[in-house]
Design a protein around this nucleic acid. Structure first.
Lengths: 354, 354
DNA sequence: CTGAAAGCGCTTACAG
DNA sequence: CTGAAAGCGCTTACAG
């Protein structure tokens, strides 16, 4: 009962020294087989590996980091991500970290504090003592933060940001293309009166998604009524309000493309309140394929953003950078593919139903 | 443009030695003011603090940890938590960590692997090199994992688990009480035909919540129809299925108490499909007050579980344990208060509406 | 109240 | 292919 109350971790049990003695080699040689860098004779390697196994030796991360000048820690900066994003991103990132022997340190960033004192954030980041950083949206589009990070000189990856011309390590999707795909899908279903709900102004994805919507409409030679572009900020509530406005129009749309799932869920809620039958009387499309998409009724037709894959890629990009010190310009930007996920929230408009 | 590609973190800039020189004292004295432990003369303390500020010195976590035998890292074990839980928990935990100078290392636990080789998890945990662990539900009720952790001897906190008689550090809510409060609320609204949807079998909270429901019904001398207790597993889909079953009954309930928000959202979806007007024709209650509760329509009346507070408490409990080596038995279990959150999903049954 | 010494468990040069 | 030495930046005893 009491066994777990004694501090068990005062000093690490087995050290590299003991492994070296057991294997009859120097510490240096043990270190070499541990790090798989230098060449070691097969027979000595086996001796060392046997000793490691017998002693159940685990290297001490702290000592390793101190001596080698790295921490094997990756910082994960986030602020108020949307539903399920955190879950999925962490799962992907953790996966890759485990494989590469790194660990993830999570840091919630206070955007208000950042804006008032951006330089303080440089310190904050340094204090963590991580080898590199992963910056998630919307922070990845925060100019102050990014500028501060560049000045520190700590490697970092920007996720799903909009400044594709930068030389920062980046993992993104093509938001415009994705929005175009969804819009073409709505048009193919027979919709002509299609409304669009914009995302938050401070995220570049908002503008990109709108651009994709417009491009698709233009390609099919469809006119976009001004009133059909509603503003929003990626929150559920803004989706509700935009929907109310759109549905009160003299000629309401037959389909609403909300530029993220949360707003789409808001649209569905507002439509239910008005007593509309979905998807017959109104089609609703989302974007992101967060967990929320499966938890509304009808379930959302949406664009799947491969969040876990993006996470994995960002970790591996970062570790590459840490190992080789530099990443070729051509390898700094990675654009991952999205997919159209068809569920029940989109159907042909009732007029043309067979 | 290229400035951020040079490795800026080879060796730390300012060290304790330089601070000591600048302040005209020994390293030891600097260390003392840093750690606020020993007594230092006010005038020397000021000199040191000035030097720290001028040099913009930050202690190196790794060196600190290696010398002191601790890592200042807290491990956060989780597996498939529900909506928003991760967000809220992380925010609370991170808050407290920052205050106490610790950092959080997140580890996703593969339950399948754990079950097949529980002993491997001991190693996994040791390898992380954290000072202590926070174990979230449902892992906090996983007997194999908990047993393995006790054997390792690393301090850990169990969150929202069911084995209240254990001596492990624990932060919980009173699930039975909370369910009772909600049930009494439904009864007070005028409901008599109240159905209950059970949670997952492997989580003790499920049984506790059911017990609370039964206790409240018994106290008001209300009979519980057998068919009114539906099984579920805390997922949205199980809520949908349970609701379909309950609503098909010859005499359907006027209120459904789903023992978490996800299932409650499922109930709402199923009710919408049947064309029921909520809350007039059916009241739905949830449990947890996750972010989902605000994102369904009508918004959920639910029990607020103070996840962020639980997180903060678990971090502080752990650090107490790390500092003092031992926590008194009386201080090991913390039961936090819940609150009834009234939104729109619960109303008097239509029969008795005025 | 303050300091000089030793050492935490590794890795980085530097030899051979 | 392998090893002896020095050192990473702190803290823990031990003195005074």
């Amino acid at each position: 009962m009491e066994e777990n109350s004694k501090r068990g971790n005062k000093r690490q049990g087995v050290t590299i020294k003991e492994v070296a003695e057991r294997a009859g080699v120097s510490q240096m040689t043990v270190s070499r087989v541990l790090n798989k860098k230098a060449v070691v004779k097969a027979s000595t390697r086996e001796k060392v590996e046997a000793a490691i196994a017998e002693l159940n030796y685990r290297p001490n991360m702290l000592a390793r980091g101190l001596a080698g000048g790295k921490s094997f820690l990756i910082g994960f900066l986030y602020h108020n991500p949307s539903y399920g994003y955190l879950n999925e991103f962490l799962n992907g990132a953790l996966d890759e970290c485990r494989e590469l022997g790194h660990h993830l340190v999570v840091e919630a960033i206070d955007v208000a504090a950042l804006e008032s004192e951006p330089s303080r954030y440089a310190e904050l980041v340094r204090r963590i003592g991580v080898d590199g950083l992963i910056v998630n949206p919307p922070l990845s589009d925060n100019h102050e933060l990014i500028t501060a990070l560049r000045q520190i000189g700590l490697p970092f990856v920007r996720i799903a940001h909009g400044d594709l011309s930068c030389a920062d390590l980046s993992v993104v999707i093509n938001d415009a293309d994705a929005a175009k795909i969804m819009t073409l899908h709505l048009i193919a279903q027979g919709h002509r009166r299609i409304a669009f709900i914009l995302g938050a102004r401070n995220q570049t994805s908002s503008a990109m998604r709108l651009a994709g919507f417009k491009a698709a409409m233009a390609r099919r030679k469809l006119h976009i009524d001004r009133n059909y572009i509603a503003s929003g900020d990626y929150t559920f509530q803004s989706g509700v309000e935009a929907a109310r406005q759109l549905l009160s129009l003299a000629e309401p749309p037959t389909a609403i493309f909300a530029s993220n799932d949360e707003m789409a869920a808001g649209v569905i809620a507002a439509a239910h309140q008005r007593g509309l039958r979905l998807p017959d009387e109104l089609s609703v499309a989302g974007f992101d394929d967060t967990a929320l998409a499966e938890v509304v009724c009808p379930r959302l037709t949406t664009i799947r953003q491969p969040v876990a894959d993006m996470a994995r890629k960002s970790v591996s990009l970062l570790t590459d950078c840490l190992i080789h010190g530099e990443v070729e310009l051509a390898e700094r930007l990675h654009i991952l593919d999205v997919a159209l996920i068809e569920r029940e929230s989109v159907a042909p408009p009732s007029g043309i139903r067979d």
